[in-house]
Amino acid sequence: MPVLVSHSPADEPWAHWITVCLRAAGHEVHLDPADSTFAARLAEGRFSSTGPVLVLLSGEHRATPADWALLASASTLVGRLVALRLDACETPQALRAVPCRSLHGLGEEDTLEVVLAVAGGIRREKVRPAGLPTASRW
Results as ranks from 00 to 15, higher is better:
58 S>K: 07
53 V>D: 05
60 E>Q: 15
65 P>Y: 01
44 E>C: 09
56 L>F: 00
95 L>H: 04
63 A>K: 04
46 R>C: 09
89 C>H: 07
81 L>W: 01
90 E>I: 03
55 V>C: 14
17 W>D: 04
108 E>L: 05
33 P>M: 11
58 S>G: 12
78 V>P: 00
36 S>G: 10
84 L>S: 05
48 S>G: 15
103 L>P: 07
15 A>Q: 07
64 T>Y: 00
91 T>Q: 02
95 L>I: 11
109 E>V: 13
77 L>A: 08
80 R>N: 08
33 P>W: 04
100 C>T: 15
32 D>K: 00
76 T>Y: 02
46 R>D: 09
38 F>H: 13
10 A>E: 15
85 R>I: 05
111 T>Y: 06
8 S>F: 02
9 P>T: 14
61 H>V: 14
101 R>F: 13
25 A>R: 05
32 D>P: 03
94 A>Q: 06
72 A>V: 10
83 A>H: 01
103 L>V: 10
49 S>K: 05
30 H>G: 13
20 V>W: 03
85 R>T: 15
14 W>S: 12
39 A>P: 07
98 V>D: 03
22 L>N: 02
11 D>A: 12
27 H>D: 02
109 E>D: 13
11 D>W: 05
42 L>E: 00
48 S>V: 11
97 A>L: 07
73 S>V: 01
52 P>M: 09
52 P>W: 02
40 A>D: 12
87 D>F: 00
31 L>T: 08
57 L>A: 05
80 R>C: 08
28 E>C: 11
56 L>I: 09
22 L>H: 02
77 L>Y: 01
41 R>I: 03
82 V>L: 02
24 A>G: 15
46 R>N: 10
109 E>M: 10
26 G>A: 05
79 G>T: 10
42 L>Y: 01
17 W>R: 15
71 L>F: 00
87 D>P: 08
30 H>V: 13
69 A>I: 06
25 A>H: 02
7 H>Q: 09
12 E>N: 10
104 H>Q: 10
45 G>W: 00
74 A>T: 09
47 F>D: 04
97 A>V: 13
105 G>I: 03
3 V>A: 09
21 C>Q: 12
71 L>T: 04
57 L>C: 13
87 D>E: 09
50 T>P: 03
105 G>M: 03
48 S>F: 04
85 R>E: 08
74 A>P: 04
16 H>L: 14
5 V>S: 03
71 L>R: 02
53 V>F: 05
63 A>I: 03
100 C>M: 06
24 A>E: 03
89 C>R: 10
10 A>S: 14
62 R>K: 14
43 A>M: 08
83 A>G: 14
7 H>E: 11
103 L>M: 02
55 V>H: 06
71 L>H: 00
19 T>V: 05
39 A>R: 09
37 T>I: 09
